[in-house]
């Protein structure tokens, strides 16, 4: 595996895995295309959308707006789908959960990989993998330590397991020292992980 050019292919045992999967996937796409079920150009467009258009920047803009606009923040916490719908399209049943000095929120999908795609893009590998899915609900402080995050021991940790079609977006706390910043400046410090609850916004010193 060490000489393999793709270190992050998680099918570690077979050097030929990549080409085998490529062939199998291509064959299936051919079949579905020949049957008239899909147009390959439409598949191209979906891939391009998630590679270039839908990602954590979407969520970061929402968080930055909530930090600067109290009315928007209230609307977001009341009904996130409706509030974000005023900025652009979003699906139903998005719930925004607010971090406070008393409570830290963290989101997981123990059964698979439910994740707010429209806000954060496609989930990273760790979010979909066994270590996070197994431990987040039993040892969230240990998981946070894996991310280098340490919270006061009296802080409540609330874990949201996404087991239905509801989706969760964490609204992190606005860091001290950002008074007077513009929405654009604020959005730049809102990391993906801070909106999952495994990180905190990053203020560069």
């Amino acid at each position: 595996m060490a000489t393999h050019e793709h270190d992050h292919d998680h099918d570690h045992d077979h050097g030929s895995e990549l080409s085998e999967m490529q062939l199998r996937v291509r064959a299936l796409e051919t079949i579905l295309t020949e049957k008239g079920y899909v147009d390959p150009a439409a598949l191209d467009a979906i891939v391009e959308t998630y590679e270039t258009k839908i990602g954590p920047r979407n969520g970061a803009r929402v968080v930055a707006k909530a930090w600067t606009d109290p009315a928007f923040k209230k609307a977001l916490l009341d009904d996130a789908s409706k509030a974000i719908g005023t900025l652009g399209r979003v699906g139903d049943h998005l719930i925004a959960v607010e971090n406070t000095p008393q409570r830290h929120n963290m989101v997981v999908c123990t059964l698979c990989s439910c994740y707010p795609w429209e806000m954060l893009g496609l989930p990273p590998v760790w979010y979909k993998a066994a270590p996070y899915r197994s431990r987040a609900v039993k040892d969230p402080r240990g998981v946070l330590a894996d991310f280098g995050v340490s919270l006061p021991k009296e802080t409540e940790i609330r874990v949201w397991d996404s087991t239905a079609e509801t989706r969760f977006l964490v609204l992190p706390m606005r860091p001290a020292g950002t008074e007077g910043w513009s929405e654009e400046q604020l959005a730049a410090i809102v990391t993906r992980d801070s909106m999952i609850g495994t990180g905190l916004p990053k203020v560069l010193s």
């Binding site: 021991k153 940790i157 609330r158 874990v159 239905a164």
Partner: peptide, 10 residues
């Protein structure tokens, strides 16, 4: 951990 709460959607 007494500070931890977990929810599911059921």
């Amino acid at each position: 951990d007494a500070t931890v709460k977990v929810s599911v959607d059921a």
